[in-house]
Amino acid sequence: MLTYAIRRLLQLPIVLFVVSVVIVGLLQFLPPSSRAAAYVKSEQQLAHLDEIIKQYNLDAPFYVQYWTWLKNALHGNLGFSRVDKKPVLESIATRLPVSAELVLYAFLPTLLFSIWLGTLAAIHRDKFLDQLIRVMAVIFWSLPTFVLGIALVAVVYGYFKLFGIGRLPPELYIQLSQQEAAGQFHFYTGLLTLDGLLNGRLDVTLAALKHLVLPTITLVLVLGAQIVRVMRSSMLDELGKDYVRTARAKGLPEKVVYYKHARRNALIPVITLAGLMFAFMLNGVVITETIFNLPGLGQWAANAALQLDQPSILGFALFTAFIVALANIAVDLLYALVDPRIRYE
């Protein structure tokens, strides 16, 4: 098992290599003038298109561009992010905490909430409660995220004047920026709730929390709906198994059968799904980030893709591939643990 894990980890660079080749290859379908999209923003600059292409070396052949990039990448330099106006690694470093903070607060509630509902639905199979939960789950899942998000912004933030958008209230953000410049506040981790505590500033932590509420709710509703469905079917599976019948025959109370026995086993596929979902969330949830104005990885990636900013796209893709691949390995290992029929030679 351990050797399997190590071998998979050693294969990771190959996965990353494939990912980078595919992206760079794809971008080569573009003529140099289109590759200049990240550099030329206005009609005025169009007049100097040829100059720009030359200046940024956009007409170099595929292999030359790739080789230059690869050489730098191996030295830990992923290039300069045109859309973010700073080095790619710096972009990831400043944006990851934003996405990560959202995930940290959204993930656990999503999981708990949906496991609870999924179990409930399975126990009351085909009863009204089950139907209700299922229909609600599908509705939230199928509701375009931006409709839900904008509705939350309008109703909760705009009308009831609760919570906030962005990461901090404007005046607090200004204050922190000034104090940071004066060396009185330090962004140690980039996670505002944590940095607030580390600096002994409970107000920062609370304000940051307040600003996380709405995006968290959006994510819980949209992503939770998926887990509810998996949890329900997984739980139904378990309830149909022999050991549950045996447990019931032994005269164990229903509650014990449900919660102590069946649910424990039913959680396994859910947790593997959750692992992937965690990686997915960490890579930025573009729409939620846009609506609630959180400058996380998702927004960056979307901008980069729209403007065909090669270094940013590559940087993001590699980072994502890395995280997802790790999650994948974990999932595979979990499978093997659960189902002894599957062997990894």
């Binding site: 904008i150 912004v153 309008a154 933030y157 705009g158 004047k161 906030g164 958008i165 962005g166 209230p169 404007p170 953000y173 200004i174 000034q178 846009t290 609506i291 609630f292 104005n293 400058p295 927004q299």
Partner: peptide, 23 residues
């Protein structure tokens, strides 16, 4: 004395912030 220029891509979000007095 203090200025904050904030990039908010979604128009609906900007309008709500204005209504609320955050902008």
């Amino acid at each position: 004395k203090k200025v904050l220029i904030q990039i908010v891509k979604e128009q609906a979000t900007r309008i709500e912030a204005l209504k609320r007095g955050d902008a």
